[in-house]
Simulated assay, not measured.
Amino acid sequence: MNEHRWADALTHVVARTPETDAAVDTDQERADHHREVSDDLQAVITRVGATHKGDTKEVILANLQRALEASGHWPQPRSWLEAVAADMEVGHLYRCGTE
């Protein structure tokens, strides 16, 4: 029986090189970037929470959305903004990340 060796041929075609390694983010780089974004989101949430204590959910949500956009973040999902604003309305500070 004649068996094809596709795996060997494919490995040769997509072999790692310094150029391909430089073009691909490592897992650590992605984790570091995620941490930076989470830290920045948290800073915005903390700032909005401190300046809008006692405000309604709608006021908090509008200010949170403006503050996030002013910080350079993409528009966040409405459901997430509502959850963060709802926590803030009752005096809880929403926490980003896994800590």
Rank of each mutant, 00 (worst) to 15 (best):
E3P: 03
V90D: 08
V84T: 04
D8K: 14
T20N: 13
H92A: 14
D87L: 03
Q76W: 05
V90Q: 14
G49W: 01
A9V: 13
E69D: 10
R16L: 13
A50P: 00
E69Q: 15
V59L: 03
W80A: 12
T98P: 01
T56C: 00
D27C: 06
M88P: 05
R35N: 13
V37G: 07
G91Q: 03
V14N: 11
G72L: 03
D25H: 12
A31G: 05
V90L: 10
E36T: 10
A85G: 08
T17S: 15
C96R: 11
S38W: 00
K57D: 02
T17P: 05
A85Q: 04
V14T: 11
D87R: 06
L61P: 02
E29V: 10
R78N: 09
R78T: 09
P18T: 07
L64M: 05
V90N: 11
L10W: 06
A7P: 01
L64Q: 02
A15E: 15
N2I: 10
M88H: 08
T56W: 00
R78I: 09
T26H: 06
N63Q: 12
A67C: 07
L81H: 03
R78W: 07
G72S: 07
R5I: 09
D21H: 07
N2L: 15
V37H: 06
V84E: 01
Q65F: 00
A86E: 10
S71A: 15
H4T: 12
H73Y: 05
H92E: 15
K57S: 04
T11Y: 12
V14C: 08
T56M: 00
T11G: 09
G54L: 06
D27T: 08
G54S: 04
L41P: 00
A31S: 14
H73K: 11
A50D: 08
N2M: 13
A62M: 04
Q76V: 10
R30Y: 08
L41E: 00
G97D: 06
P18C: 09
E58G: 02
H92P: 02
W80K: 15
E29L: 12
T46D: 08
V48T: 02
A31F: 10
W6L: 11
E3N: 13
V84K: 02
R95C: 05
A67R: 05
V90P: 02
T46N: 03
D40F: 00
H34N: 14
D39S: 06
L61E: 11
L64P: 07
I60H: 00
Q76I: 08
A86W: 02
E19D: 12
A62E: 07
G97C: 06
S38T: 05
P75W: 01
A31T: 14
V37F: 03
T56S: 12
D25R: 15
L93W: 03
R78V: 09
R16V: 11
D55R: 09
K57A: 06
L41K: 02
W6P: 01
E29I: 07
D32V: 14
R30I: 09
